[in-house]
Amino acid sequence: MQVIKRLGVLLCSLIWLLASHTGVYSADLQEIKARGELRHLGIPYANFVTGSGDGFDVEMVQGFAKHIGVKYTLVYTDFYSVIRDLLGKNVVRKGADVGLEGDFPVKGDMIATGFTVLPWREAVLLYSQPTFPSQVLLLARADSNIAPIKGSKDLEQDIKETKKLIGNNSLLVMERTCLDPSNYGLKGIGVDLRAYTKNTNLNEMVPALLNREAELTLLDVPDVILDLKKWAGKIKVIGPISGHQDLAAAFPKDAPELRDAFNEYLAQIKKDGTYDILVDKYYPGVRRYFPAFFSRENEAKLLSP
Results as ranks from 00 to 15, higher is better:
I4E: 11
G8N: 10
I15V: 14
L17T: 12
S26D: 03
A34F: 06
R39Q: 07
H40M: 09
H40V: 07
P44S: 15
Y45E: 13
N47D: 14
V49W: 11
T50V: 14
G51L: 14
D54G: 14
F56R: 09
F56S: 08
M60Q: 10
Q62V: 08
A65G: 03
H67E: 14
V70R: 07
Y76C: 02
Y76S: 11
D78R: 10
F79N: 12
S81T: 13
V82T: 12
G88M: 09
G88K: 10
K89A: 08
L100M: 13
G108W: 04
T116H: 11
P119E: 12
E122Y: 12
E122R: 15
L126W: 09
V136Y: 03
D143A: 08
Q157G: 13
K164L: 14
L171E: 01
E175M: 09
S182T: 11
K187A: 11
V191S: 00
T197E: 15
N199W: 09
L210H: 05
N211I: 00
A232D: 15
S242Q: 02
H244N: 02
D246I: 03
F262R: 08
K271Q: 10
G273A: 06
T274I: 07
A292H: 01
A292L: 01
F293A: 02
S295K: 02
L303T: 00
